[in-house]
């Protein structure tokens, strides 16, 4: 309804303005549909939209947010969207299936040291400190066979435990703190904003930072497009990435400010005061193939994947060198 009305208004306005602009030839804005997830990780895109950076490039962005992002890559494969925000695990698995996807720009990642944007928490005083302690215990993860699950296993192994002796129970992020508090799981690998809120409420305590204790600068999520679209529209992709990068630059310069918090509150619906208190991912413009290699190695170690993956071949040139 909202879209329809907006489209109608736009059409009506265009019809009204037609006689005025008809004599002039105007560059037609290219429309791009982008599948996103309404989480803090996509802030660069949303800022570039809010600040008009795409408009400067004669691009019109229409986002299709899906909570959880499960629809992103299927929609990309079906050509329903031209660009999708996708986590690295799903992207690698899709590439392995020869779906013809390329990463066109960086997205969100982790840094070199804690704090990360996610951590393992238990009840206060549970006494579970290492992977060894977690053998025979249960850790809540959002989805099995995805990034949280993989790094939970990697952390268990790294800290002396057998990852196969730990039970990983699927619990949606919003319910993880309750699951720990109610004793339904022993621990949860939980992301922001639930991570900060849980710690603030003293219901849980931090045990570990599985991300940065197993791998520095994990390439968590990126923007992906299909090879076919990129080959047919290299200029459009370049414009998209240029505008997106400008959004990332703006964000890094204005992090923590009121305007920044306002834009993020607008699409995540988080309360602005909450946004200022949560841990943030690192917003990347490009992707380091070595980071993908490390993640792929972990995926193979934990039997998510067989055979080699050429990380460099997954990256389109706009993801290798920042578009200015």
């Amino acid at each position: 309804m909202r879209l329809t009305r907006r489209r109608f208004t736009a059409a009506a306005a265009a019809a009204g303005a037609l006689p005025l602009i008809a004599p002039r030839v105007r560059a037609q804005a290219v429309k791009l549909r982008v599948s996103t997830i309404p989480i803090i990780d996509t802030a660069g895109l949303q800022i570039a939209m809010a600040k008009g950076f795409f408009k400067e490039q004669d691009l019109e962005i229409d986002t299709t947010p899906t909570a959880g992002g499960a629809a992103g890559l299927p929609a990309l494969a079906a050509g329903q969207v031209q660009i999708a925000f996708s986590n690295i695990i799903s992207t690698v698995l899709a590439v392995k299936q020869n779906l013809g996807f390329l990463i066109v720009s960086g997205g969100s990642g982790t840094g070199d040291a804690p704090p990360d944007l996610a951590g393992i928490v238990t009840k206060p005083g549970a006494g579970l400190k290492t992977g060894k302690d977690f053998e025979g215990k249960t850790i809540a993860v959002n989805t099995r066979n995805n990034i949280i699950w993989l790094y939970a296993r990697a952390w268990v192994k790294k800290t002396g435990g057998d990852p196969d002796k730990v039970t990983y129970l699927e619990v949606p992020f919003p319910q993880m703190i309750d699951a720990v508090r109610g004793g339904r799981v022993d621990a949860a690998f939980v992301v922001e904003p639930f991570f900060s809120a849980g710690q603030a409420s003293k219901a849980v305590e931090l045990v570990a930072w599985p991300y940065s204790s197993t791998q520095k600068r994990i390439p968590v999520a990126q923007f992906v497009a299909s090879k076919a679209y990129i080959e047919a529209n290299p200029g459009t992709i370049e414009k998209f990435v240029r505008a997106y990068n400008k959004g990332v630059d703006w964000m890094n310069a204005n992090k923590g400010g009121d305007e920044w918090a306002g834009i993020i509150a607008g699409y995540t619906r988080l309360k602005p005061e909450q946004i200022k208190s949560i841990g943030l991912p690192v917003f990347e413009k490009t992707v380091d193939p070595r980071g993908i290699d490390e993640t792929v190695a972990l995926m193979r170690e934990h039997k998510m994947l067989e055979g080699a993956v050429d990380a460099k071949a997954m990256l389109y040139k706009t993801a290798v060198e920042a578009v200015k």
């Binding site: 309804m1 909202r2 879209l3 309404p38 989480i39 986002t63 299709t64 947010p65 899906t66 909570a67 959880g68 499960a70 629809a71 929609a75 992020f173 919003p174 904003p193 639930f194 809120a197 995540t268 619906r269 988080l270 309360k271 909450q274």
Partner: peptide, 24 residues
């Protein structure tokens, strides 16, 4: 709308849940 939505009741409910706005 919860599975593949960008509007409507289902999308609103999931969004509010992930935004930690249980009352909404």
């Amino acid at each position: 709308e919860m599975i593949a939505g960008s509007a409507g009741i289902g999308y609103h409910i999931v969004t509010m849940q992930y935004a930690m706005r249980a009352a909404d």
